[in-house]
């Protein structure tokens, strides 16, 4: 679906944000791109929808070189939800905001209406339909930005720091529908340093540092590697920290989610009593 070949990218300011990065993401994958602030995560995903074009190397989406395509063409397949919703929102009402993209892609009014309603419901925004996105809290604005992209149903959905400013119940809802989007066959790419969030959804983790990919593999393997975690300014998941300290009781070390932890500890307690 997405193929990045030896891509380097330097911003006009001289910041060398990507250094010969190669990665392939297949159709239907669930990927979390993680790493410290300034690691190049956002720069990388902006290559996927053509917002940025490689300085060196090539990016292919469905076999098409992004150099030959406009952002509008690529966006139909690859939807990017920005980190800072304020960079994305500009309409007078939440409803208009969500309808804007749809209209631009030339959907009929009828489909348009249906999709807007669907997106409002999905993100629990019905009550804000008629008000300005700028009246809303930071977390709510983020949901509007997400709704406006989901509405045109791109096959690849990229969420840049979706959990920032979201409370736990919204994170849980986000987790649920990210999973849902993925099981429906969408490719989902998260850019995040919310390690606790990633620990619960167990995706493929791509770890970046200083413009390079330093590790790529299942979450369970990457998130429990203290060296890699330290290198990228992350912190081991709380559950993993616990299991590191339980190793001498015979527990495995590579535990990241509450669900796994619960089972292991329940079994242990049952055996002991």
């Amino acid at each position: 679906m997405i193929k990045v070949e030896n891509v380097s990218f330097t911003y006009p300011s001289g910041v060398n944000a990507l250094k010969s990065v190669s990665i392939e993401i297949s159709d239907g994958e669930f990927v979390a791109i993680m790493g410290e602030n300034g690691a190049g995560k956002t720069t990388l995903v902006k290559q996927f929808n053509g917002l940025l074009k490689p300085g060196e190397g090539d990016v292919y989406v469905d076999g098409r070189n992004t150099r030959d395509l406009s952002v509008a063409e690529l966006s139909k397949d690859v939807g990017l939800v920005f980190q800072n919703a304020d960079h994305q929102l500009f309409c007078e009402t939440v409803e208009d905001e969500i309808a804007f993209g749809l209209r631009n892609f030339g959907f009929s009014n009828r489909v348009n209406k249906k999709r807007v309603k669907w997106a409002l419901t999905l993100l629990d925004l019905q009550e804000y339909r008629k008000i300005s996105p700028f009246m809303l809290s930071g977390g709510e604005r983020k949901r509007v930005a997400l709704a406006s992209v989901l509405a045109w149903k791109p096959r690849v959905i990229i969420l840049d720091e979706p959990t920032v400013g979201q409370d736990q119940s919204q994170k849980e809802r986000l987790l649920q529908f990210v999973r849902q989007l993925n099981t429906q066959g969408n490719t989902v790419i998260l850019v995040t340093h919310d390690i606790e969030f990633v620990a619960e959804c167990d995706p493929r983790v791509v770890l970046m540092s200083h413009g390079r990919i330093v590790a790529d593999g299942p979450a369970k393997k990457i998130l429990t590697n203290p060296k890699l975690i330290k290198k990228t300014s992350l912190i081991l998941p709380q559950i993993t920290q616990l299991f590191f300290k339980l190793a001498d009781l015979g527990f495995p070390k590579d535990v990241i989610s509450i669900c796994e932890a619960k089972k292991l500890i329940n079994d242990f307690v049952a055996r002991r009593s």
Binding site: D167, Q168, S169, Q170, K171, E172, E196, P237, Q238, I239, L242, I258, A261, K262, I265, N266, V269, A270, S273
Partner: peptide, 18 residues
């Protein structure tokens, strides 16, 4: 119930069987 991100360690405690 109020949707607070209580620490995972506490959640793990709350979800234990006994």
């Amino acid at each position: 119930l109020m949707g607070i991100g209580i620490p995972k360690i506490v959640r793990l405690y709350q979800e234990l069987e006994s």
